[in-house]
Design a binder for these strands. Structure first.
Lengths: 209, 209
DNA sequence: AAAATTATTAACAAATTTGTTAAAATTTTC
DNA sequence: GAAAATTTTAACAAATTTGTTAATAATTTT
């Protein structure tokens, strides 16, 4: 518990989040974080002993947000399965839209230092198993009712994540290639959300032989 | 044109590709590249003046491979549109499977240094426009024939890329979370390829009102 | 085989970056 | 308001990393 008002600590955290999310661990500079936060870089080491510790704080937050965004997917209550799915897709899409830098950040860090993230295993597997079991149960029920075509829960989950997350990951490339600023083009994202729901709905609809 | 047999130059290039693809520009070390290539790091600077120039070589190759993988999508000739599409999806999936590190590499670099990649604009826009025009033309034709439901070419292209590329991008996270080694599990990727084709086929099938 | 070109090495240098420390300033506690 | 604890600063240090250079070795050219 800090005694003084710790605005500087908060400033550093905020600056670190921007720096780490944009440039990744390797590209981030503690001096740059300090400069953005408006403090000497000795302050950064005073509050957070090392660059690593500061990074851990930010990364942990990130994982939390992403994990929650997926967890929430299936906490919808009594509705027809397809409606719940559509609602879940929409909610998930909006979370990613508001945190569009998080997925690439997490993927990049895990990719460049996989050994470092044994912790992810615990964080994720502790709840992912449960989510998939629940999903599969609901899928099987709806399929038996003839509301949807049968599908594996992991397959469906990866379909959803691919469609909802990838556009935000490819965004910088897309912008570099077209010269457009997609964040300004809110129409683009609204259309994308619709498309993702449409595509999953069609995937789930039973084919009439 | 180098006069001597330039195996070392090739060794350095090969080592650089591994290092840059795995760790990204910021995480890559020229000393590490030299060590992997089995040469002194002065040799690296002899053949490629700077880290930047070496990186450019690798990055250019990468962009070439990826661009070609997408270009090839629509060079299939006379077949029903849906069949061409399925074939294109399958081919694209296999290219990415064989170069599974390339997409994340490119996305990561563009994301952390967008200003540096004005060149991408030229490389991509020079052909992308053409591809999209061709695609849209074929889509409209097939739609008029009642073979498929109408769709925007950019939308369909992004659907395909999302489904085909994202699983490979999320792979390290997935592996960290599950402890599995997906490269060993070729069944997983075969199933994924099937699912992607299935999902796009359903997206394209006209809905019967 | 001598000359010219190219490849290789080892030692060095400059810049950057993370992290430390000890003293000074500020705030809190009593 | 004095003592104690905490915050802040400035200067420094160690390690890393990219890049240079000048001398040496090897190869090609003539």
């Amino acid at each position: 518990m800090t005694k003084h008002h710790n605005n500087k600590e908060q400033d550093i955290l905020a600056a670190a989040k921007v720096e780490f999310l944009e440039k990744g661990y390797d590209g981030a500079r503690t001096t740059s974080i300090a400069r953005i936060a408006g403090v000497t870089h000795a302050m950064l080491h005073y509050y957070f002993k090392t660059k690593d510790q500061l990074f851990e704080r930010i990364f942990h937050e990130t994982i939390g947000t992403l994990v929650k965004s997926i967890l929430d997917v299936f906490t919808q209550d009594e509705m027809p399965f397809k409606d719940r799915m559509a609602k879940a897709l929409e909610m998930h899409f909006e979370v990613i839209r508001e945190n569009h830098l998080l997925p690439l950040f997490m993927i990049r860090e895990v990719a460049s230092r996989p050994e470092r993230f044994s912790m992810i295993k615990n964080v994720i597997s502790s709840f992912a198993g449960n989510l998939l079991v629940t999903m599969q149960h609901d899928i099987d029920l709806a399929a038996k009712r003839g509301e949807i075509t049968p599908i594996d829960a992991p397959t469906l989950l990866l379909d959803m994540l691919s469609l909802n997350v990838f556009p935000f990951i490819i965004k910088p490339v897309f912008e570099a290639a077209t010269g457009l600023n997609l964040n300004a083009e809110s129409k683009f994202w609204d259309q994308r959300k619709k498309e993702n729901i449409e595509i999953i709905m069609r995937r789930l609809t039973p084919s009439q032989a």
